[in-house]
Design a binder for these strands. Structure first.
Lengths: 227, 227
DNA sequence: AGTTCCATACTACCATACAAGTATGGTAGA
DNA sequence: TCTACCATACTTGTATGGTAGTATGGAACT
């Protein structure tokens, strides 16, 4: 499901899509923000057509809501969806980590170790943005090592809501040290082929993602869907 | 991720999208078929704009490949993606069936039983199309009973390739009786809250989906991505 | 005969004009 | 003052013309 395989990433439409997606997931565009096609087309110096294309794609991922003849808004974070995303990811990550404990290419293992070193650095430097990226990369490497790239891409597509809560969390109370420790334990478990332990840590790791979702909802009520 | 929540399902663009998707998944439009914007717009009696919109959405789901300035084709079935879809689905269905064995609403349980009766009918009448729909519905009910509707919708999105192989399989050698028996066993296991047994049957059920993928590749080589 | 080149007929991509539905603010009337 | 109405300025949805890149077939040349 790598979109670059199907869609010309150099086209104006794809460029707008990628930028908007980045801005939405990073909360640069806050949940609930209105986005008109015309205004966006002026910002990006293109016509409405490629903007519309990007809106269609974002709508399909649940990142924006298109209300016909009324407007388009950055979607509010849906707590139920966040929980489901966590559920999905937990199941898939647990299964993948078990595969990794059976067999994992040396190259990818080295990549994990290198990634961990960078995580340590970024943690010490309190570089939250970098840590976020490294976190993503760490898990992607696990999937890639198990030849489950497509699965990872699907997860990414549905992680829009989950990722936004993680960014919010980063704003409030980052505790990257714990995440780093968990990553390190997962790495060691894979290296030692200790599947049961790896799965256990991964399970805790995933459940941490939404541990303080109620706090976030209380703190940023305007970003969440009431439901 | 219910698309009707975000996108006006009554619009021309969505209508074209839904029809094309149905035709592609049912193999009415064979993998590899070329689809030009203009030709499709003439077929559907609409302008190229809504057709383009539908192409964008189909491309994002991997159902068509858009080759800039060259054309648009119905995507070939990617065996690797089929296997990954099966993997994903196995993990998620196993997790859900365990949840169902812990707690499952009476309404949904009744719906399952009703669905099973219809399956028996359709099997006796050799109505493959109906059986396919009932199969889908059976699993959807399981997810709905566990409040995992969003998860089911995500699965649906990525099941394009897997579903097409299942349709192919239906053409060659339908053995709905076995599927019916498995569904029945799953139902009973949920009713008796026998999680281990339910998971085991579900695992076999999922692995059945691609049991004869090599045969299909040999029989319909032009439908598969060489890779 | 084989090869090169070019006219032509496609393709998707983009910009723009128009259509149709919706929110809003002001005005006329009670 | 309050209410009903309507003009207006938005919004997204749709149609269409033009642009640039690509495949193809035939003609001219070697």
């Amino acid at each position: 499901m790598d979109e670059s395989m199907f869609q010309q990433s150099g086209s104006a439409g794809s460029a707008v899509y990628q930028q908007l997606k980045q801005q939405i997931v990073s909360l640069e565009l806050a949940p609930g923000t209105t986005l008109s096609e015309k205004e966006t087309s002026l910002n990006f110096q293109v016509s409405r057509t490629p903007v519309r294309e990007s809106f269609v794609r974002l709508a399909q991922e649940g990142l924006v809501w298109v209300l016909p003849q009324r407007g388009t808004r950055v979607s509010l974070i849906d707590s139920d969806m966040v929980e489901e995303a966590r559920f999905m990811r937990e199941q898939l990550e647990k299964a993948v980590i078990r595969l990794a404990c059976e067999a994992f290419p040396a190259d990818n293992l080295a990549a994990l170790e290198s990634n961990l070193e960078q995580q340590q650095e970024s943690t010490q430097q309190h570089d939250g943005k970098k840590m976020f990226e490294l976190d993503e990369a760490f898990h992607r490497i696990l999937f890639e090592g198990c030849r489950k790239n497509g699965t990872w891409n699907v997860i990414q597509q549905m992680n829009a809501h989950l990722n936004r809560t993680r960014v919010l969390w980063l704003w409030t109370e980052p505790h990257w040290e714990l995440l780093y420790e968990q990553h390190r334990e997962i790495f060691l478990a894979v290296k030692q082929k200790n599947a049961d332990h790896a799965e256990q840590i991964m399970k805790e790791h995933m459940q941490l993602s939404i541990a303080n979702l109620p706090i976030l909802k209380e703190r940023f009520p305007e970003y969440f869907k009431s439901s």
